[in-house]
Amino acid sequence: MTTWLAQRLVQSVFVVLVMTAIVFVGVNVIGDPVSILISPDANQQERARIVAEFGLDQPLWSQYLSFLKGTLQGNFGNSFVYGMPALQVILSRMPATMELAIAAILLSVLIGVPLGLYAGLRPHSFFAKFMMAGSILGFSVPLFWLALILIMFFSVYLGWLPASGRGQTVDFLGIGWSFFTWDGLSHLCLPVLTLSIFKISLIMRMVRAGVREVLPQEYIKFARAKGLSRQRLLYVHVLKNIMIPVVTIIGLEFGSLIAFSVVTESIFSWPGMGKLIIDSINVLDRPMIVAYLMIIVFIFVTINLIVDILYTTLDPRVRLSRD
Protein backbone atom coordinates (compact mmCIF):
# COMPACT_ATOMS: atom_id res chain seq x y z
CA MET A 1 0.00 0.00 0.00
CA THR A 2 2.77 2.47 0.88
CA THR A 3 4.78 1.51 -2.19
CA TRP A 4 1.70 1.90 -4.28
CA LEU A 5 1.08 5.32 -2.78
CA ALA A 6 4.65 6.39 -3.41
CA GLN A 7 4.44 5.22 -7.01
CA ARG A 8 1.19 7.03 -7.43
CA LEU A 9 2.68 10.25 -6.03
CA VAL A 10 5.65 10.08 -8.37
CA GLN A 11 3.24 9.51 -11.21
CA SER A 12 1.28 12.62 -10.22
CA VAL A 13 4.40 14.76 -10.13
CA PHE A 14 5.30 13.42 -13.55
CA VAL A 15 1.88 14.37 -14.90
CA VAL A 16 2.28 17.90 -13.58
CA LEU A 17 5.68 18.11 -15.30
CA VAL A 18 4.27 16.92 -18.58
CA MET A 19 1.48 19.43 -18.32
CA THR A 20 3.88 22.32 -17.71
CA ALA A 21 5.63 21.34 -20.90
CA ILE A 22 2.35 21.22 -22.80
CA VAL A 23 1.21 24.57 -21.45
CA PHE A 24 4.59 26.05 -22.23
CA VAL A 25 4.53 24.77 -25.78
CA GLY A 26 0.96 25.97 -26.18
CA VAL A 27 1.74 29.47 -25.03
CA ASN A 28 5.16 29.91 -26.59
CA VAL A 29 5.07 27.84 -29.74
CA ILE A 30 1.48 27.60 -30.94
CA GLY A 31 0.55 31.06 -29.72
CA ASP A 32 2.91 33.86 -30.64
CA PRO A 33 4.12 35.38 -27.40
CA VAL A 34 5.48 38.46 -29.13
CA SER A 35 2.12 39.39 -30.55
CA ILE A 36 0.50 38.79 -27.19
CA LEU A 37 3.02 40.77 -25.23
CA ILE A 38 3.70 43.65 -27.51
CA SER A 39 1.21 46.05 -28.96
CA PRO A 40 1.33 46.17 -32.78
CA ASP A 41 2.29 49.83 -32.90
CA ALA A 42 5.31 49.48 -30.58
CA ASN A 43 8.57 50.64 -32.15
CA GLN A 44 11.58 48.44 -32.76
CA GLN A 45 13.40 49.48 -29.57
CA GLU A 46 10.43 48.79 -27.35
CA ARG A 47 9.98 45.45 -29.04
CA ALA A 48 13.59 44.45 -28.39
CA ARG A 49 13.36 45.57 -24.79
CA ILE A 50 10.29 43.41 -24.10
CA VAL A 51 11.76 40.44 -25.93
CA ALA A 52 14.86 40.68 -23.75
CA GLU A 53 12.84 41.23 -20.59
CA PHE A 54 10.78 38.11 -21.07
CA GLY A 55 13.79 36.14 -22.27
CA LEU A 56 12.17 35.47 -25.62
CA ASP A 57 15.54 35.64 -27.33
CA GLN A 58 16.77 32.69 -25.29
CA PRO A 59 16.70 29.15 -26.71
CA LEU A 60 13.44 27.34 -26.11
CA TRP A 61 14.72 24.89 -23.51
CA SER A 62 16.18 27.62 -21.36
CA GLN A 63 12.91 29.51 -21.66
CA TYR A 64 11.18 26.36 -20.48
CA LEU A 65 13.53 25.97 -17.54
CA SER A 66 12.91 29.50 -16.38
CA PHE A 67 9.18 28.91 -16.88
CA LEU A 68 9.42 25.75 -14.80
CA LYS A 69 11.33 27.60 -12.12
CA GLY A 70 8.70 30.32 -12.05
CA THR A 71 5.95 27.71 -11.83
CA LEU A 72 7.58 25.98 -8.89
CA GLN A 73 7.84 29.29 -7.09
CA GLY A 74 4.26 30.14 -7.97
CA ASN A 75 5.52 33.06 -9.98
CA PHE A 76 3.65 33.49 -13.25
CA GLY A 77 4.26 37.22 -13.59
CA ASN A 78 1.87 40.06 -13.04
CA SER A 79 -1.53 40.16 -14.61
CA PHE A 80 -1.67 42.73 -17.41
CA VAL A 81 -5.11 43.78 -16.29
CA TYR A 82 -4.90 43.70 -12.53
CA GLY A 83 -1.22 44.60 -12.17
CA MET A 84 -0.89 42.03 -9.38
CA PRO A 85 0.74 38.58 -9.32
CA ALA A 86 -1.51 36.37 -11.44
CA LEU A 87 -1.47 33.55 -8.92
CA GLN A 88 -2.68 35.86 -6.18
CA VAL A 89 -5.57 37.14 -8.29
CA ILE A 90 -6.70 33.63 -9.13
CA LEU A 91 -6.35 32.30 -5.60
CA SER A 92 -8.49 35.16 -4.32
CA ARG A 93 -11.27 33.99 -6.68
CA MET A 94 -10.94 30.31 -5.90
CA PRO A 95 -13.19 30.12 -2.81
CA ALA A 96 -16.16 31.40 -4.81
CA THR A 97 -15.68 28.66 -7.40
CA MET A 98 -15.16 26.00 -4.76
CA GLU A 99 -18.29 27.09 -2.98
CA LEU A 100 -20.29 26.63 -6.16
CA ALA A 101 -18.76 23.26 -6.93
CA ILE A 102 -19.23 21.89 -3.41
CA ALA A 103 -22.83 23.06 -3.22
CA ALA A 104 -23.54 21.51 -6.61
CA ILE A 105 -22.00 18.15 -5.76
CA LEU A 106 -23.87 18.02 -2.45
CA LEU A 107 -27.17 18.74 -4.15
CA SER A 108 -26.46 16.17 -6.87
CA VAL A 109 -25.70 13.43 -4.37
CA LEU A 110 -28.61 14.28 -2.08
CA ILE A 111 -31.06 14.11 -4.97
CA GLY A 112 -29.34 11.69 -7.33
CA VAL A 113 -28.66 8.81 -4.93
CA PRO A 114 -32.21 8.45 -3.49
CA LEU A 115 -33.75 8.80 -6.96
CA GLY A 116 -31.35 6.18 -8.32
CA LEU A 117 -32.10 3.80 -5.45
CA TYR A 118 -35.81 4.18 -6.03
CA ALA A 119 -35.50 3.69 -9.78
CA GLY A 120 -33.32 0.64 -9.22
CA LEU A 121 -35.65 -0.97 -6.69
CA ARG A 122 -38.84 -0.24 -8.62
CA PRO A 123 -37.72 -0.10 -12.24
CA HIS A 124 -41.21 -0.64 -13.59
CA SER A 125 -42.94 2.07 -11.61
CA PHE A 126 -44.20 5.08 -13.48
CA PHE A 127 -42.09 7.46 -11.44
CA ALA A 128 -38.90 5.52 -12.17
CA LYS A 129 -39.59 5.44 -15.89
CA PHE A 130 -40.46 9.13 -15.82
CA MET A 131 -37.20 9.95 -14.05
CA MET A 132 -35.19 7.84 -16.46
CA ALA A 133 -36.71 9.62 -19.44
CA GLY A 134 -36.11 12.92 -17.66
CA SER A 135 -32.48 12.01 -17.12
CA ILE A 136 -31.97 11.83 -20.88
CA LEU A 137 -33.17 15.43 -21.00
CA GLY A 138 -30.85 16.24 -18.12
CA PHE A 139 -27.97 14.72 -20.04
CA SER A 140 -28.81 16.54 -23.21
CA VAL A 141 -29.56 20.10 -22.19
CA PRO A 142 -26.52 22.31 -22.71
CA LEU A 143 -25.43 23.88 -19.46
CA PHE A 144 -25.42 27.45 -20.69
CA TRP A 145 -28.86 27.19 -22.19
CA LEU A 146 -30.25 25.68 -19.04
CA ALA A 147 -28.80 28.64 -17.15
CA LEU A 148 -30.56 31.05 -19.49
CA ILE A 149 -33.87 29.27 -19.14
CA LEU A 150 -33.59 29.22 -15.36
CA ILE A 151 -32.83 32.94 -15.35
CA MET A 152 -35.70 33.60 -17.69
CA PHE A 153 -38.13 31.70 -15.52
CA PHE A 154 -37.02 32.35 -11.96
CA SER A 155 -35.52 35.83 -12.32
CA VAL A 156 -37.29 37.51 -15.20
CA TYR A 157 -40.72 35.88 -15.15
CA LEU A 158 -41.24 35.02 -11.48
CA GLY A 159 -38.74 37.47 -10.07
CA TRP A 160 -37.94 35.12 -7.20
CA LEU A 161 -34.21 34.65 -7.45
CA PRO A 162 -31.35 36.97 -8.37
CA ALA A 163 -29.70 36.26 -11.73
CA SER A 164 -26.24 37.59 -11.09
CA GLY A 165 -23.57 38.21 -8.52
CA ARG A 166 -22.72 36.49 -5.31
CA GLY A 167 -24.83 38.42 -2.83
CA GLN A 168 -23.89 39.12 0.74
CA THR A 169 -20.97 37.08 2.04
CA VAL A 170 -19.80 36.39 5.55
CA ASP A 171 -16.15 36.07 6.43
CA PHE A 172 -15.15 32.70 7.76
CA LEU A 173 -11.52 31.66 8.12
CA GLY A 174 -10.60 34.91 6.39
CA ILE A 175 -12.58 34.07 3.26
CA GLY A 176 -16.00 35.37 2.24
CA TRP A 177 -18.76 32.73 1.89
CA SER A 178 -22.31 33.11 0.64
CA PHE A 179 -23.34 29.92 2.40
CA PHE A 180 -24.18 31.69 5.60
CA THR A 181 -26.62 34.42 4.56
CA TRP A 182 -30.06 34.20 3.02
CA ASP A 183 -29.04 36.67 0.40
CA GLY A 184 -25.97 34.62 -0.41
CA LEU A 185 -27.98 31.39 -0.55
CA SER A 186 -30.53 32.91 -2.89
CA HIS A 187 -27.69 33.91 -5.20
CA LEU A 188 -26.34 30.37 -5.01
CA CYS A 189 -29.62 28.76 -6.05
CA LEU A 190 -29.64 29.22 -9.81
CA PRO A 191 -25.95 28.58 -10.57
CA VAL A 192 -25.95 25.51 -8.34
CA LEU A 193 -29.14 24.17 -9.89
CA THR A 194 -27.65 24.71 -13.34
CA LEU A 195 -24.53 22.78 -12.46
CA SER A 196 -26.47 20.01 -10.70
CA ILE A 197 -29.00 18.93 -13.32
CA PHE A 198 -26.48 17.00 -15.37
CA LYS A 199 -24.82 15.47 -12.32
CA ILE A 200 -28.15 14.45 -10.82
CA SER A 201 -29.01 12.61 -14.04
CA LEU A 202 -25.61 10.97 -14.09
CA ILE A 203 -25.58 9.87 -10.45
CA MET A 204 -29.17 8.68 -10.64
CA ARG A 205 -28.44 6.52 -13.66
CA MET A 206 -25.30 5.11 -12.10
CA VAL A 207 -26.99 4.25 -8.85
CA ARG A 208 -29.92 2.71 -10.68
CA ALA A 209 -27.62 0.60 -12.84
CA GLY A 210 -25.68 -0.38 -9.73
CA VAL A 211 -28.81 -1.50 -7.88
CA ARG A 212 -29.99 -3.47 -10.90
CA GLU A 213 -26.63 -5.17 -11.05
CA VAL A 214 -26.26 -5.91 -7.35
CA LEU A 215 -29.80 -7.06 -6.55
CA PRO A 216 -29.73 -10.35 -8.51
CA GLN A 217 -26.34 -11.28 -7.05
CA GLU A 218 -26.10 -14.46 -5.01
CA TYR A 219 -24.74 -12.62 -2.01
CA ILE A 220 -27.93 -10.59 -1.82
CA LYS A 221 -29.97 -13.79 -1.82
CA PHE A 222 -27.67 -15.25 0.78
CA ALA A 223 -27.99 -12.11 2.89
CA ARG A 224 -31.76 -12.42 2.68
CA ALA A 225 -31.51 -16.07 3.60
CA LYS A 226 -29.71 -14.97 6.75
CA GLY A 227 -32.88 -13.16 7.77
CA LEU A 228 -31.56 -9.62 7.45
CA SER A 229 -34.06 -6.80 7.36
CA ARG A 230 -34.72 -4.99 4.11
CA GLN A 231 -33.12 -1.84 5.52
CA ARG A 232 -29.90 -3.63 6.41
CA LEU A 233 -29.87 -5.30 3.01
CA LEU A 234 -30.34 -2.03 1.17
CA TYR A 235 -28.23 0.35 3.23
CA VAL A 236 -25.34 -1.98 3.94
CA HIS A 237 -25.14 -4.76 1.37
CA VAL A 238 -26.43 -2.94 -1.70
CA LEU A 239 -25.25 0.57 -0.93
CA LYS A 240 -21.71 -0.36 0.03
CA ASN A 241 -21.26 -2.06 -3.32
CA ILE A 242 -22.73 0.84 -5.26
CA MET A 243 -20.85 3.51 -3.36
CA ILE A 244 -17.52 2.44 -4.80
CA PRO A 245 -18.25 3.59 -8.37
CA VAL A 246 -20.35 6.47 -7.11
CA VAL A 247 -17.57 7.89 -4.96
CA THR A 248 -15.20 7.61 -7.90
CA ILE A 249 -17.62 9.44 -10.13
CA ILE A 250 -18.30 12.11 -7.53
CA GLY A 251 -14.59 12.82 -7.30
CA LEU A 252 -14.13 13.05 -11.02
CA GLU A 253 -17.29 15.08 -11.49
CA PHE A 254 -16.11 17.53 -8.88
CA GLY A 255 -13.31 18.32 -11.27
CA SER A 256 -15.71 18.75 -14.13
CA LEU A 257 -17.81 21.10 -11.98
CA ILE A 258 -14.79 23.31 -11.51
CA ALA A 259 -14.25 23.19 -15.26
CA PHE A 260 -17.85 24.05 -16.06
CA SER A 261 -17.77 26.93 -13.62
CA VAL A 262 -16.30 28.70 -16.65
CA VAL A 263 -19.77 28.66 -18.16
CA THR A 264 -21.99 29.21 -15.13
CA GLU A 265 -19.83 31.92 -13.66
CA SER A 266 -19.84 33.82 -16.94
CA ILE A 267 -23.61 33.72 -17.16
CA PHE A 268 -24.36 34.41 -13.52
CA SER A 269 -21.52 36.93 -13.13
CA TRP A 270 -20.24 34.79 -10.29
CA PRO A 271 -16.91 36.26 -9.20
CA GLY A 272 -14.94 33.00 -9.35
CA MET A 273 -11.94 31.80 -11.29
CA GLY A 274 -14.02 30.53 -14.21
CA LYS A 275 -15.30 33.96 -15.08
CA LEU A 276 -11.84 35.33 -14.52
CA ILE A 277 -10.26 33.00 -17.07
CA ILE A 278 -12.82 33.81 -19.75
CA ASP A 279 -12.22 37.53 -19.20
CA SER A 280 -8.48 36.92 -19.30
CA ILE A 281 -8.67 34.93 -22.52
CA ASN A 282 -10.74 37.67 -24.11
CA VAL A 283 -8.12 40.31 -23.33
CA LEU A 284 -5.20 37.87 -23.79
CA ASP A 285 -3.88 38.35 -20.27
CA ARG A 286 -1.16 35.76 -20.74
CA PRO A 287 0.16 35.40 -17.16
CA MET A 288 -3.38 34.85 -15.97
CA ILE A 289 -4.04 32.16 -18.58
CA VAL A 290 -0.86 30.32 -17.72
CA ALA A 291 -1.42 30.58 -13.98
CA TYR A 292 -5.00 29.39 -14.35
CA LEU A 293 -3.97 26.40 -16.43
CA MET A 294 -1.30 25.39 -13.96
CA ILE A 295 -3.66 25.71 -11.02
CA ILE A 296 -6.24 23.62 -12.87
CA VAL A 297 -3.63 20.98 -13.62
CA PHE A 298 -2.68 20.92 -9.97
CA ILE A 299 -6.31 20.67 -8.83
CA PHE A 300 -7.04 17.85 -11.23
CA VAL A 301 -3.99 15.84 -10.44
CA THR A 302 -4.84 16.18 -6.76
CA ILE A 303 -8.46 15.16 -7.32
CA ASN A 304 -7.41 12.11 -9.32
CA LEU A 305 -4.99 11.15 -6.62
CA ILE A 306 -7.62 11.47 -3.90
CA VAL A 307 -10.15 9.49 -5.93
CA ASP A 308 -7.61 6.74 -6.47
CA ILE A 309 -6.83 6.56 -2.78
CA LEU A 310 -10.52 6.57 -1.86
CA TYR A 311 -11.25 3.87 -4.37
CA THR A 312 -8.44 1.79 -3.00
CA THR A 313 -9.61 2.11 0.58
CA LEU A 314 -13.24 1.45 -0.30
CA ASP A 315 -12.77 -1.65 -2.40
CA PRO A 316 -11.01 -4.39 -0.46
CA ARG A 317 -10.27 -6.31 -3.62
CA VAL A 318 -8.32 -3.42 -5.09
CA ARG A 319 -6.65 -2.66 -1.77
CA LEU A 320 -5.32 -6.15 -1.49
CA SER A 321 -3.91 -6.22 -5.00
CA ARG A 322 -2.03 -3.03 -4.17
CA ASP A 323 -0.59 -4.19 -0.89
Binding site: Q217, E218, Y219, K221, F222, A223, A225, V236, H237, K240, N241, I244, L314, D315, P316, R317
Partner: peptide, 14 residues
Protein backbone atom coordinates in the same frame (compact mmCIF):
# COMPACT_ATOMS: atom_id res chain seq x y z
CA UNK B 1 -29.59 -21.96 3.36
CA UNK B 2 -26.24 -22.59 1.68
CA UNK B 3 -25.83 -21.69 -1.97
CA UNK B 4 -23.99 -23.17 -4.87
CA UNK B 5 -21.17 -20.80 -5.68
CA UNK B 6 -19.08 -19.89 -2.64
CA UNK B 7 -17.37 -17.20 -4.72
CA UNK B 8 -20.66 -15.40 -5.07
CA UNK B 9 -22.48 -15.91 -1.80
CA UNK B 10 -20.40 -13.63 0.37
CA UNK B 11 -20.60 -9.89 -0.16
CA UNK B 12 -17.20 -8.96 -1.60
CA UNK B 13 -16.96 -5.55 0.06
CA UNK B 14 -17.87 -6.55 3.61
Amino acid sequence: MIFQDPMMTLNPVL
